[in-house]
Design a protein around this nucleic acid. Structure first.
Lengths: 144, 144
DNA sequence: GTATTTGCAAAAGCTTTGCTGCAAC
DNA sequence: GTTGCAGCAAAGCTTTTGCAAATAC
């Protein structure tokens, strides 16, 4: 929020509600769920405002956009950008999303930037597969 | 193709055309471009067949789905799954897509699997930012 | 008073689906 | 003759847009 103000962006009351809702959701919220939750605080918020605010936050680099392997359709998910980039692992069976921030990920970013000369602005590493529990269950099924 | 046959999947003539077209496109083709290209060989191919074939190939693990940072809208891109997973770097300025297969990426996959117990089926690492040339151009603009 | 934000409804873009007829084994 | 594939058109879901009214500076 402070960053937006510093960047000369107006914090309207609707924007405040939307930003706080994303923060409270603690990650992985999609646009229409955000709309529904924000409306509990301000029923006049419109879909268009949600999408326009998301766009604003995305462009300012304050939120990250995720696809989460399109496990539940084509919608996007959003989360507040954290100090440390992390990986999302989506389980095809139970739908759980795990997060990891492996040290090698940071190293990899450096390696890629060096190797390609690319100036990395956003990075998104998504993994799809089976979580520990579901992988075990699958093996039981196959051998059972 | 052999893999599909081995898996008992029927290779119809339309499916053959679609698969060959993806292969010839050498990566990063979206569904409607694929439709247009495939129609040059068989004008009767329908959109629905393209989407259903893509779905089939995806489920069988023969193609990978990419978003390429949604640089050009919400469509998906497809490429034949290669022996080695690789990273896509999308330039926000010129739209170029670069590919990298850094050794650390392979290590990272191993680390993640060990750390989480996750059974990795697909992995997608996408980077957005500025390619070497565009980053340079940007700096010239800022200092010029 | 000028610029930005909002509400509303319509449209857009991409993808999926239902159903009917057709082809393959 | 049963099973799976294709063609067509319609609908689906998510997101974007145009424009007029409202709000902020």
């Amino acid at each position: 929020m402070q960053e937006l103000i510093a960047q000369g962006v107006r914090i309207t009351s609707q924007r405040r509600v939307l930003i706080e809702t994303i923060q409270e959701a603690k990650g992985h919220i999609d646009a229409l769920t955000l709309l529904a939750m924000a409306r509990k605080r301000d029923a006049s918020i419109d879909r268009a405002t949600v999408y326009r605010t998301i766009d604003l936050l995305k462009k300012r680099g304050l939120i990250d956009e995720l696809d989460l392997m399109h496990l539940t359709g084509e919608k996007h998910f959003y989360e507040v950008k954290t100090r440390r980039d992390h990986v999302h692992l989506a389980c095809f069976r139970c739908g759980k999303i795990e997060e990891l921030a492996p040290p090698l990920f940071e190293e990899l970013k450096g390696e890629m930037a060096r190797q390609s000369g690319f100036e990395i602005k956003v990075i998104r590493l998504e993994v799809g597969g089976f979580c520990k529990a579901c992988a075990k269950a699958d093996r039981r099924q196959l051998t059972g």
